[in-house]
Amino acid sequence: MPHQGFPRCLRLLNAGDFSHVFEQADLKVHGKGMMALARLNTRGHPRVGLVVSKKNVKLAVDRNRFKRLVRESVRLRQDHLPSVDIVVLAKRGVQDIDNETLYRQLDGMWKRLQRDALAVATPPLLAGITRDT
């Protein structure tokens, strides 16, 4: 059975980790009420950080619910996520989305992130070949 915990090594912990992603994000994935920025890492596992501002999500209970659901989603999908540092940003209106819809949004975002990370990590083989027409 795969490890299903959420240890410190799966989290972005300090401002340097967050700014590393914000400065040059390799990937950007949008969902309803949220956005994820990601940058490839060499750690062999994903790390996630959350940005939920009071300006976008007024009530603490809504901010905490969003963070809890994102952490749970990452915890359950950690073995399927690519080796990237991810910052998930909450946008206005995320508090109006119910839990089931939020889980579906996150699942779709992780699938797109996995697909896009594979494309970024392995550039197309035909990129250097020119066509003579």
Rank of each mutant, 00 (worst) to 15 (best):
V21H: 01
V21D: 02
V21M: 06
V21I: 08
F22D: 01
A25G: 03
D26Y: 10
L27C: 10
L27H: 02
L27E: 07
L27F: 10
H30R: 05
G31S: 06
K32P: 08
K32T: 11
M34L: 14
M34H: 12
M35D: 01
M35I: 10
A36W: 01
A38E: 07
R39K: 15
R39V: 13
R39Y: 11
N41H: 13
N41G: 09
T42I: 02
R43L: 15
G44S: 11
P46A: 12
P46Y: 00
R47Y: 03
R47T: 02
V48L: 14
V48P: 00
G49P: 04
V51M: 14
V52A: 15
S53K: 12
S53Q: 08
S53P: 06
S53D: 08
K54G: 15
K54E: 09
K55R: 13
K55I: 11
K55C: 09
N56C: 13
V57Y: 06
K58C: 12
K58F: 07
L59H: 15
L59Q: 14
V61R: 13
D62Q: 10
D62A: 12
R63G: 02
N64L: 12
R65V: 02
F66H: 06
K67D: 04
R68K: 13
L69V: 12
R71D: 04
R71I: 08
R71L: 04
R71H: 08
R71T: 05
E72M: 00
S73I: 01
V74C: 09
V74L: 06
R75G: 00
R75K: 05
L76F: 00
L76K: 03
R77Q: 15
Q78M: 06
Q78D: 02
D79C: 12
P82I: 08
P82E: 07
P82H: 07
P82L: 05
S83F: 01
S83N: 00
S83C: 11
S83A: 14
V84E: 03
V84H: 01
D85K: 00
V87C: 10
V87M: 05
V87D: 06
K91I: 00
K91M: 07
R92C: 09
R92M: 11
R92P: 04
V94P: 04
V94R: 01
Q95P: 06
D96C: 03
I97T: 12
